[in-house]
């Protein structure tokens, strides 16, 4: 930093920009390279996976064969898994969001007795270890005979305390009391006030909570691992893990490395795309959570 004083207003700044951009490129490289690897690997057959450079395409493009393989292996069960993931993530995500929007509004705009301690309790529940919930949930669901059904994954996934927190914080800022008062004075009941006045103003937060809830269920591994044993019901995360364990342990016939890589690649595309297209929403939503 021995730049003469009179040029110091310009040159260090330019240098710093270059340094900063170099830093960012390295960082971006680190975060993207595994995904790039997966994209490349999805186009290789098993021989190519072992025998060609890891970060570049091999001679023959086997992506189509891999897709065909996913349709053939174990009767195309991969697509069942993918469908299950969609089913679980969207039902649980939508349900959790509806519940969180209502609760967030209730906590933000109504002072009822006990609401403060109750909200603290809900926030504190984030600390409960998953095993402490999954083990008794497993036993209870077995008792009621809904173990090993889609409900065993969907119902417990409706619980999303963080969604309630985000909705509460957002509602507090986005909905002025005056608007609710005005609507009430106009003779609208609480239900109509909520649906016609409040809900439209909450749309960005609703999209955020919906997206985050879907992601949580889509990514869930612990719960389905515990409550599902029927291979037909597994979500794609548990299914692919099962294939990997078999391929690592098993003989040649069970080694389906090319199907694992192409299946994994296909399974991450929908979420990455929705994050890219909905970035306006989740960035705002996470900001809400961050600033409070």
């Amino acid at each position: 930093m021995s730049t003469p004083v009179h040029t110091s207003t310009r040159r260090p700044r330019g240098k710093r920009r270059i340094g900063a951009h170099a830093f960012l490129i390295i960082l971006a490289f680190y975060f993207v390279i595994p995904i790039w690897w997966l994209l490349v690997a999805a186009t290789k057959d098993t021989a190519g996976l072992f025998g060609s450079p890891a970060f570049w395409f091999s001679g023959d493009f086997a992506f189509v064969e891999n897709i065909a393989g996913l349709f053939e292996h174990q009767g195309g069960i991969y697509w069942r898994w993918l469908g299950n993931s969609f089913l679980y993530a969207f039902t649980a995500g939508a349900g959790a969001t509806i519940v969180a929007v209502l609760a967030g509004y209730g906590f933000a705009k109504f002072r009822f007795r006990g609401s403060g301690p109750l909200f603290t309790l809900i926030l504190g529940s984030v600390m409960v270890p998953l095993t402490a919930l999954v083990i008794p949930t497993f036993v209870l669901l077995s008792d009621y005979g809904i173990i090993n059904t889609p409900w065993a994954v969907i119902l417990p996934s409706l619980l999303n305390p963080f969604g309630v927190y985000l909705m509460r914080v957002y509602t507090q800022d986005a909905i002025p009391d005056e608007i609710m008062e005005a609507s009430r004075i106009d003779g609208a009941g609480e239900v109509r006030t909520f649906f016609t006045v409040v809900l439209p103003m909450l749309r960005p937060a609703v999209v955020t909570v919906l997206l985050l809830s879907i992601v949580v269920t889509w990514n869930n591994f612990f719960l389905p691992l515990a409550v599902l044993t029927d291979p037909e019901l597994l979500p794609v995360t548990v299914g692919l893990n099962r294939w990997t364990a078999l391929s690592n342990a098993g003989a040649g016939g069970e080694q389906v490395w090319n199907l694992i890589t192409s299946g994994a690649f296909i399974s991450i595309v929908p979420l990455i795309l929705s994050f890219l297209f909905l970035q306006r929403y989740w960035q705002g939503g996470l900001a809400t959570g961050a600033v409070k």
Binding site: I35, F221, L240
Partner: peptide, 16 residues
């Protein structure tokens, strides 16, 4: 790009 891994399920991340 830095945020993209968050959209990847933990299982798939660990597999990769």
């Amino acid at each position: 790009l830095i945020f993209v891994p968050y959209a990847v399920p933990v299982v798939i991340g660990a597999l990769m």
